[in-house]
Amino acid sequence: MSDSIKNSDKAPEPVGLYPHARKVGNLLFLSGVGPRKKGTKEIPGVTLDADGNITDYDIEAQCHSVFENVRLVLEASGSSWDKLVDVTVFLTNIKVDFKKYNAIYAEYFKDNQPCRTTVEINSLPTPIAIELKCIATID
């Protein structure tokens, strides 16, 4: 079963005991992917105060970063962007961020249009405004 676990050496490390992805049959299930940068706690577009609370954030920067991180996990796992079949998007402020996120999403997914669900949640485990949960096909 361990050969079904997939990790990327280019994507940010998981924040808990879980893999970046797991292959089951010809499907690849990605764990939640956020916009953090590998090897650091830096989150593009996020400003924190001394106590680690968000004082400002840029949803556009986070969107670009999270989409790049998803791509890195897909490629390290033997899949690719065009093989995404389902995307669940978690936003912490859908009323403010949805329009910008939706426009950026359309740029990245104009050629491949997986099924999508977007939901608002109260918070995420790290100070981020977006996280993606994806399913792709894999050979």
Score class of each variant (00 low, 15 high):
K83T: 01
V66G: 03
E68V: 02
V70L: 03
V73R: 00
D111Y: 11
S79C: 07
A106G: 13
S79I: 04
P127E: 10
D86W: 11
I104E: 09
A103F: 08
C134K: 02
N93K: 12
A76Y: 06
Q113F: 14
Y108M: 03
L132G: 03
V73K: 06
T118A: 08
F90N: 12
Y108A: 07
D86A: 11
K95I: 00
N93Y: 03
S79W: 01
C63D: 06
L91G: 06
N69Q: 09
I94D: 06
A129P: 03
K100F: 05
I121V: 15
P125I: 06
N122E: 14
F98W: 09
I128S: 12
I94E: 10
K95A: 12
E68K: 14
A76V: 00
T126W: 03
N122S: 15
L132W: 01
V87I: 15
N69K: 04
V87G: 05
E120C: 07
R71E: 13
P114A: 08
K95T: 04
E68L: 14
I130S: 02
V96A: 14
Y108T: 07
S123T: 13
A103L: 12
L91R: 01
T92M: 09
D111N: 13
D111Q: 08
T118F: 00
Y101L: 04
E75T: 08
P127F: 05
F98P: 02
V96Y: 10
V87Q: 02
T126V: 15
E68R: 12
S77Q: 03
T126K: 11
V119P: 02
E107M: 12
V66L: 04
K99C: 05
L84I: 12
K110Q: 13
T117D: 14
S77Y: 05
G78N: 09
R116P: 02
E131G: 07
K110M: 10
A76S: 15
E107Q: 13
T117Q: 11
L124S: 00
S77A: 12
S77G: 09
A129L: 09
V70F: 01
C63R: 02
Y108C: 07
V89G: 01
K133R: 12
A129C: 12
T88G: 11
T118Q: 04
N69W: 04
G78V: 07
E131K: 05
K99L: 11
N122M: 09
K95F: 11
L72T: 10
F67R: 07
D82K: 10
N69T: 02
F90K: 15
L124Y: 00
G78R: 03
W81V: 07
C115V: 09
C63Q: 02
E131V: 05
K100W: 03
K99E: 13
